[in-house]
Design a protein around this nucleic acid. Structure first.
Lengths: 142, 142
DNA sequence: ATAATTACTTGCATTTTGCAAGTTATAATG
DNA sequence: CATTATAACTTGCAAAATGCAAGTAATTAT
């Protein structure tokens, strides 16, 4: 079921949809970690419970952020893929990671700090469009 | 009390802090609506409950996202102000509003659509730096 | 034919959020 | 200067979201 909107503020309205512990994490797993099946998500580092995953995937689909499909030769495995609306969340994720990188290391030193983070620091916009491009190529390959 | 981090992912870590219904709404109210006292927040359109407000303000302070102060001549009224760490959340808010503007109007037609939104569409980066500048000027005026 | 895999659902415990009322300290008012 | 109002909370309890563990149904692999 679609959530209610608290008011007409564009900032708050985005958070009425995305402002919880899981929605953007699921999007991240799809965009960055290439996860696409129910099982993929359950095996993630963040360890989402299956009942919550199920609820959130339904909501994301209802909102048009993802679509649920199957491969023609497999009746068992569902594929969850980002739509344009979902891919348009990339800049939000990039800004979240940028903020983490700059301000969260003090209280959480373990945050990953490899080559990908260098690319992010170096050019946020390029990082975002590279992610989107890669995802679209993957979609085209299906 | 500081929240726990689910893992070392920079995206997920940001959401461990900001991924709820209220944290970024409070930041938005400070940055965009100029709210700075406990009462200001309780009078907001989003109608946050006082117990939750109290909890979140404490957490934001503990995280160094805001500071709590007073004006020299008023012992009663507390002022909550954004730090640099808090101001650095501006790009996230801007991206959230941009996404709302483009993709949420279908299911929530009431989203405000005035002159400010035109400015946002026209130049996101300029919109963000204008917000930050305005806030810093206000801080300097105190 | 049997076992394993995938995608869930269900029941219950815990945590977070929300509402309404109460409390304390300071400030304004007559 | 006594009374009232205001600001900033806290407390108790209800409701909703999240989390855990176990179970189920429909494929697919062996």
């Amino acid at each position: 079921m679609l959530p209610e909107f608290r008011c007409d503020c564009p900032f708050t309205s985005a958070l009425d949809i995305l402002g919880d512990k899981w929605m953007l994490v699921i999007i991240k797993q799809m965009l960055i970690e290439g996860k696409e099946t129910f099982k993929d998500f359950t095996e993630s580092e963040e360890a989402i419970a299956t009942n919550i995953l199920s609820t959130k995937l339904k909501l994301l689909e209802e909102l048009g952020i993802i679509v649920k499909t199957k491969r023609p030769n497999n009746k068992k495995t569902n594929l969850y893929l980002l739509t344009d609306t979902g891919l348009a969340l990339t800049p939000i994720l990039v800004e979240l990671a940028t903020w983490s990188d700059k301000y969260l290391r003090d209280i959480h030193p373990g945050i990953v700090n490899g080559e990908e983070m260098q690319l992010l620091r170096n050019d946020k916009a390029a990082f975002a469009s590279r992610l989107e491009k890669k995802y679209r190529e993957k979609l085209a390959a299906n």
